[in-house]
């Protein structure tokens, strides 16, 4: 079976003005060889071209280096790692929102055609993002239109997808609010009146209403208190299993990764350190960095 999403060699270097001014490696506390695998903080190699960086790429901060991954239909892939390990950048590279310096992100669309999200017309990419793909942002305010009602936020996707009847779009929006456990009487309220947990659920409804095949979740439970988080995780688990969605999610919480994902990819300094079955990577970690991560968790 062919994967739904296959990425090869995704690389992104964030160019800093200082690196562009002087091609030579900067000296100072940031320069020098990258620290050992367990010295912290050692997330990013020093500015400027280093031995770690593949040749032929611009100088700057490497955020993602030659990351490859595959996601199949109905599969949840978790990207874990500490802040600055390149998880969010990778998610943005996968969906094409950020242009990579090298690499491809090949998505197999509903017609079975392969689309490189890194190399597709922006119009087509946006159409895909509204229909077959979804992106749930860590801060729901980034993924919602705060100036229109909650119902309009959800119905917008349907109208953009060709729905021409207002009553049907409204009914679908109401059904989705119910599904994500938001009282339907709040349909016409502004998202400004919603709590943080409700906003996140509204954003999930907005992203799932058009029936996507692949959804990207950026720290879906970040910034939520534990009871709201448990409710959201429960919702996500059921939605993912019920809709046979493929999901790529980032999280720094290994317990969230264990609960939601089938496979995980451990990232550090923009590279993949280890990957495999979630429980195997967490219970029998091979790489020193993964062992550090799992042993640093309070309870798994």
């Amino acid at each position: 079976m062919k994967p739904l999403l296959a990425a090869h060699g995704l690389t992104k270097i964030f160019r800093s003005p200082s690196a562009e001014q002087s091609a030579e490696p900067t000296t100072g506390p940031l320069a020098g060889p990258p620290a050992g695998p367990l010295d912290r903080p050692s997330d990013w190699p020093a500015t400027g071209p280093s031995a770690e960086q593949p040749a032929g790429l611009p100088a700057g901060q490497p955020a993602c280096l030659e990351v490859a991954l595959e996601v199949h239909a109905g599969e949840v892939l978790g990207l874990v790692g500490e802040s600055g390990s390149g998880k969010s950048t990778l998610l943005n590279l996968l969906c094409g929102a950020v242009k990579a310096d090298a690499g491809q992100s090949l998505y197999r669309d509903a017609l079975g055609l392969e689309v490189d999200l890194q190399n597709v017309e922006e119009v087509d990419r946006r159409r895909l993002m509204r229909s077959e793909l979804g992106f749930v942002r860590q801060n729901p305010r980034d993924g919602l239109n705060m100036n229109v009602s909650a119902g309009a936020n959800v119905a917008e996707r349907l109208l953009a997808g060709g729905e021409r009847r207002y009553d049907r779009a409204r009914a679908a929006a109401a059904a989705w609010l119910e599904r994500v456990e938001i009282p339907v009487r709040r349909l016409d309220d502004s998202p400004e009146t919603y709590s943080g947990g409700m906003l996140q659920r509204l954003q999930i409804a907005k992203n799932l209403v058009a029936g996507p095949r692949l959804v990207f979740l950026d720290e879906p439970t970040g910034g939520l208190d534990v009871s709201v988080q448990a409710r959201l995780l429960d919702l996500l688990r059921n939605l993912v299993a019920g809709l046979r969605l493929a999901v790529v999610l980032t999280t720094h919480d290994l317990a969230v990764a264990r609960l939601l994902s089938h496979r995980i990819l451990v990232m550090k300094g923009g590279r993949t350190v280890e990957s495999g079955l979630t429980d195997q990577v967490l219970d029998d970690p091979q790489a020193p960095y993964t062992q550090l991560l799992t042993s640093s968790t309070l309870s798994l």
Binding site: H8, G9, E66, T272
Partner: peptide, 8 residues
Amino acid sequence: GAFAAAAA
């Protein structure tokens, strides 16, 4: 990973 490296 090995495949990607080789492909690159």
